[in-house]
Design a protein around this nucleic acid. Sequence first.
DNA 1: ATCTGTAATGAACGATCGTTCAGCCATTAT
DNA 2: ATAATGGCTGAACGATCGTTCATTACAGAT
Lengths: 229, 229
Amino acid sequence: MSAAGEVKSVVSDPRLVEERRRQIILAAVELFSKEGYHTTTIQQIARRAGTSTGLIYQYFGDKEDVLFLTLKLVIDSYENEIPFRLDGVVHPVERLCTALSAYCGVVDRLRDATVLAYRSTMSLRAERRALIKEGETRTNRLIEACVRDCTTGGFMRPVAEHLLAYQYVMFAHSWALKHWSYRERYALDEYVEEGIQLLVDPFLTAKGRLALASKRARDEVPGADLPVD
Amino acid sequence: MSAAGEVKSVVSDPRLVEERRRQIILAAVELFSKEGYHTTTIQQIARRAGTSTGLIYQYFGDKEDVLFLTLKLVIDSYENEIPFRLDGVVHPVERLCTALSAYCGVVDRLRDATVLAYRSTMSLRAERRALIKEGETRTNRLIEACVRDCTTGGFMRPVAEHLLAYQYVMFAHSWALKHWSYRERYALDEYVEEGIQLLVDPFLTAKGRLALASKRARDEVPGADLPVD
DNA sequence: ATCTGTAATGAACGATCGTTCAGCCATTAT
DNA sequence: ATAATGGCTGAACGATCGTTCATTACAGAT
C-alpha cells in the first residue's frame, strides 16, 4: 500500500516539498480539467506554475505522480470535510441531511477536479486506481451508515440502504457532472434542498419527518426556538 | 451542423463504408474502453480489427473521427432503443417504468462504451462535443416528458420534474459507472426493480400505485388476467 | 574567501505515434 | 491480353512531449 501511495522527491526539506507540490498541483488541476490529462504537457504545467520543467521532476517521479496527487487531493477532501461537518450533529436525520449538504459543498468547491476524477482515474496504474477507489468506497460507507442510523432509529422506513446511499453520492457528483445543465436552474443550496425533498423526505417516517421539520425551523431562524435572554 | 457531424471517407461504396466503419469501431470501443482514448494507438485498433493502419484513414479522416463515431453510436442507441421499447405502451406510469428499464438495458448492453462516453467526450472538438451533448439532452427530455405525463395525469404527485428525470438518467448511467460495485449485489432486472421502488413508487398517487401494481401482475404471469380459451 | 550541498534551470535526447504515400492486388471494362 | 479503377498495405516521416542532466545559483559552514 505504501509503495503505491508514495511519490518520490529529490528534494529533502519536507516543508518545501509540500509547498512546491501544492503550487504544481494547483496548476495541474486547472490544466488537466480544461484540457485533459494526456493533452496537457509538463511544460504547460511548469509555465502555469511559474517554474521550470525540470523542477517538476524534483518533486514528482513522473507525470502520473502529478495526476495521482491531484486526484488524491479530491478524495481526501471528501473524506475530511464530510466528517468535519458532521461533527457534533447527533440526530440521525440531521446527520443524513448534513452529510448530503456537505458532500454537495465539497463537490461544488472542487467542481472541476471532481469531473477530472471521473475522467482520468483510469489513467493511473492499477494499484493507485485501487487506492482512489478505496477512498471513494469509504465515503460511500459513511453515507450508508447515516442511512442505516435513520432506519434503525425508526426515522426512516426500511429501504435498500446500499442503493439509496449511492443515490446520494450520485446526486452530489451530478452537481459537478451536469453543472452545465443545473447552473442556470438552481443555486447550490436550492439544489441541496430539492435533493432532500426528492431523496430523503419520501422515506422518512412520521417521526423522521418531524425531526426534519424542526431542523428546517432552526436553520431558517437560528436560535428562534431557544429562549433568548 | 452537418459539417461537424460528417466524417470524410476515401472509399465511395456506401455499403462498404458502413461495414468497415462498424468493424473498426467495434475494435475501437473495446480498446478505448480498456486503455483509454489517448493511450490506444491507431496501430492497435488496426491490429484488433484485423486490418492495416492505412485502411483506417480510408474510412476516417483522423483519430478523432473514430472516437466521434464511437460515441455517436452510444447516444444514437439511447435515442433509438428507448422510444422503440416505449412503442405501444400507453399508460403514463407504465411508460415511465418502461423508459427506465429500457435505459438501463441499453446501458447494460453498451456498458463499456457508456463509461467511455463519460471519460472521453471532452477529447472531441467543441462542435462535436455539442452534438453529443444535444443527443443526451434529447433523451433527458424524453424521460422528463414521461414524468410530466405522470404528474399531469394525476398518477404522480407534483415534483421537480427536471431534477427527478435526471435522477432516472443518473440511475441508468450508474449501472455502468458503478458496475464494479453493483455487479456482486444485483442482476440487471433486480436493479431496475429496486430503482422503481426508490425513484418511482414514492411519488405515485394512490391512482398511480394501482397502475403500477397491475403492470407488475401482468409482468409476473403474462396473460394471466386474460380469458384463456 | 572558499567549500559544500541543495535547489532550480532549460536545452537537448529519444521514444512514441498519428499520418502519409508509393506501390500492390483484384476485379471489371476495353 | 491489357488497361483502368478502386480498395488495401505497411514502412517511413515528422512532430510532439516526457524525461534527463550538465550547468548555474545560492546559502550556510569552515
